[in-house]
Amino acid sequence: MESVQIITSGSKLAEAVMAESGQNVNLCFQCGKCAAGCPLSYAMDYKPAQLIHAIRLGMDDLVFKSTTMWLCATCETCTTRCPQEVDVAKVMDAVKIIAVRQGVKPTIPQIAKFYRAVLANVKMCGRMYEMGMIVDYKMRTFEFFKDMKLGMKMFRKNKLKLVPSFTGAMRTWKIFNRVKKIEKRNLST
């Protein structure tokens, strides 16, 4: 029988990523395919392969201060190409989630604010109410004039609804709350 060896590196952060996403970054052998194929590599301070390595080494500070995970567009190229079957996109999600949980300030605040605006909207409305989400996002970022012209044109072309539907709003509200409770319980055990 083939013996299964779990590779570890003693990095607490790697273990946290494992617990959050089920992904073992220690399987990475630094081939660099994830970095080479990543469409956002050019804009990141650390390429995906470097971030993975930093997680392995337990360089929490470098990881949390990096822009990499926030710029990830979840295109899943890295995940699909990794010869070691590390789901790199999932690791990106996990690092963001862990950073937020530990109260680390997001390196690209507008992206974190965008996530919050979208989720607050889905929780309240059941379905995304774009107009409300955009206003909420602008209130959070103070970028009032950005994309104004575009938004007006979309509205004129009837691409944005004036009123939310609220279908399923009661249900999404409950789901969000139950998820929060379950996650809290998971963390305390």
């Binding site: 996403s21 989720l119 889905v122 059941g126 789901i175």
Partner: peptide, 25 residues
């Protein structure tokens, strides 16, 4: 009838459980 948002990227970037619960609803 009564479908809800799938949560899209903001959900899986914020909570794995939420990102799976919304589609299942």
């Amino acid at each position: 009838k009564g479908w809800v948002c799938c949560g899209t990227s903001p959900a899986h970037c914020s909570s794995k459980l939420l990102s799976l619960a919304l589609p299942y609803e």
